[in-house]
Amino acid sequence: MNLNKTLGAMLLGGALSLSGAALSQDMIRIGVSYPTPTHAWAAGMNWHAEKAAERIEALYPDIDIILVNSPDPSAQASALEDMVSVNQIDALVILPFESEPLTDPVLNVKASGAFITVVDRGLSQPGIEDIYVAGNNPELGRVSAEYMKGRLNSGDNIVILRGIPTVIDTERFDAFMAEIEGSGINVLDDKHANWNRDDGFEVMQDFLSRFPDIDAVWAQDDDIAIGVVAALKQAGRDGDGMFVVGGAGMKETIKSIMDGETLIPIDVLYPPAMLATAMDVTVAKFKSNGPVAGRYILGATLITQENAASFYFPDSPF
């Protein structure tokens, strides 16, 4: 095969890898690596990534997108090696399974000359990635608290259902508490409901038995919120202006917001499309005349009845 032949002819000048790509030289290959979806939000992310790959490849015939999902960190590390040796990627978009075990493999990809975009979970060494795209966990907590303050008065009572005890959960919770402080709203208690419907249902049942007066619930997550709503309806305490704030942007929740549901009047976005966004920004690196390197922190948008339609993807699994 011809090595190092036609680079000079390329519009992109020196930006491309000089590694001696052997396949067809004028193709831009972008590898996208992420964990195999095991829960609904990740399945939504997978769906958005697949859609983005179709759209980008249709738009730019010279771009080839290689989507690979891996069931565990070591499989992801192997997938990265294959992307370099077999696919000879020019850019990598990666949502690391875990930061620590994938830092070295990503460094190796970078050493091959590829452009690196890291999504959502940072690597354990700074400065490896050219682009960082992530959701905003503290902002999700803050926006939720801000909405609560707008709806409730001083002296009103809320309960909080948290996720799985992780940094993500702590960031959301701490930001929520910081924003709610001084408003006079009482946080009666917070318990972990592990981002799942069954735990949401049971924890909320117990909160309802324990506290006779609850004015609103921060469920932090749309799955938990579904369990919470079932418990509220079972206890007949879904009236009197009671409302539940979830988070993430599940399609069923968005749909019911569009339809004017009052029990879950809003949602706070933790965009499942963030991998698609990262792919777009990475493509822009090759196709745009503007610089794209840097950190892209996506908004935790407040989804209301007015803007819900633009966050509604009926075909996505999430």
Partner: peptide, 11 residues
């Protein structure tokens, strides 16, 4: 079950 649900939730 993950496969049937396409990674998401069956409702």
């Amino acid at each position: 079950v993950t496969y049937f649900a396409d990674g998401g939730t069956l409702s």
